[in-house]
């Protein structure tokens, strides 16, 4: 008995430490390669550079040029697409969550929640495909109709589709946050002569705002790290622009492009992918930590 239990405990500890070791290993690998990159390229020209053009380095006739590794256009492109996606997903997701948690009958809720889960389970490449094949042409035609030029691979198309991907995510996290608001507050508001809508808008949503905010942060971190949709819909050329109708590129797209094909592993172009990965990791880590922190404090306030 004691031996069996100890053996079982050993297995559990082993499994746990594997997860920890793997994480540390990945971070260490990224860190080491990034340091190698920064020994070749000045960190300030990376973090503050506004020109991203790593391709120059492999052009034989320009052997001397090291390429230009300015991170800013990628960051701006990533944030632009993230913002567009949030502009779609936050209002929609929140509306769904409010409807499900405050207004829908339990039967309707039982029918809609599985649909959301299916939506959340669609592989992102399918969304990317949808953006590329369906949405981008529609946007281009629409733009032509209105007399504005929409790039074939626009930030708008990528952002809209990414927003669709995030809707079930935000809806589900916001619903959890609304659900956590105790009924006593609903009854308190109704008992003061609020309509259900007033109670929801003035008491329930404000009371669950920290949870909703945390959900939005987690969604942003997903949007920032999302790869397939932007690879298919956003474009590769790094324009520094905030015009959603133009093509932009993102950090993830550039990592993919940098690592596709045969490269030397000490080529700055390859190493740049690690520096990008590190930046991405840091960005999403910070967002996740803030979100978890908010959720924790929020849970405590209702205990």
């Amino acid at each position: 008995m004691a031996i069996r239990e100890r053996a079982l405990l050993g297995v559990l500890i082993l499994a746990t430490s594997m997860a920890v070791v793997t994480t540390i290993g990945i971070v260490a690998a990224i860190l080491v390669e990034s340091l190698r990159f920064f020994s070749i390229i000045d960190p300030s020209s990376f973090f503050f550079g506004t020109l991203w053009s790593p391709q120059i380095a492999i052009r034989e006739d320009q052997a001397g040029a090291a390429g230009s590794f300015g991170f800013i256009p990628l960051l701006v492109g990533t944030l632009l697409i993230t913002l567009i996606s949030l502009a779609v997903a936050v209002p929609m997701g929140l509306a769904i969550a409010v409807y499900l948690s405050e207004f829908a009958s339990s039967r309707t809720r039982g029918q809609i929640k599985p649909i959301l889960e299916i939506l959340a389970g669609i592989p992102t490449i399918v969304y990317g495909f949808f953006a590329l094949v369906t949405l981008s042409p529609i946007l281009r035609d629409l733009g032509a109709e209105l007399g504005v030029e929409v790039a074939g691979e626009s930030a708008l198309a990528a952002g809209l589709v990414m927003g669709m991907m995030l809707i079930p995510f935000i809806a589900s996290l916001s619903e959890d946050a609304l659900f956590a608001v105790p009924d006593s507050l609903r009854h308190g508001a109704i008992g003061l002569g609020s309509t259900q809508l007033e109670a929801t808008a003035r008491v329930i949503i404000p009371a669950s705002l920290p949870g909703i905010a945390a959900g939005i942060l987690l969604a942003s971190s997903r949007a920032i790290g999302e790869t397939m949709i932007v690879v298919m819909a956003a474009g590769i050329a790094a324009h520094l622009t905030i015009n959603p109708l133009e093509a932009v590129t993102t950090v993830t797209v550039q990592i993919v492009t940098l690592l596709i094909g045969d490269q030397e592993f000490d080529d700055p172009k390859t190493l740049a992918a690690f520096a990008l990965g590190l930046s991405l990791f840091a960005l999403t880590l910070v967002l996740n930590i803030i979100a978890l922190h908010i959720v924790k404090r929020y849970r405590q306030s209702y205990e």
Partner: peptide
């Protein structure tokens, strides 16, 4: 809704809104 403005209710467990004291009273 009008009925509940004429007939107020205080519950068994205090249930102030997670708002300021002022906003709680000003709610109605």
């Amino acid at each position: 809704v009008d009925l509940r403005t004429h007939v107020g209710m205080v519950f068994q467990k205090p249930n102030p809104f997670p708002k300021s004291i002022y906003d709680n009273v000003a709610y109605g």
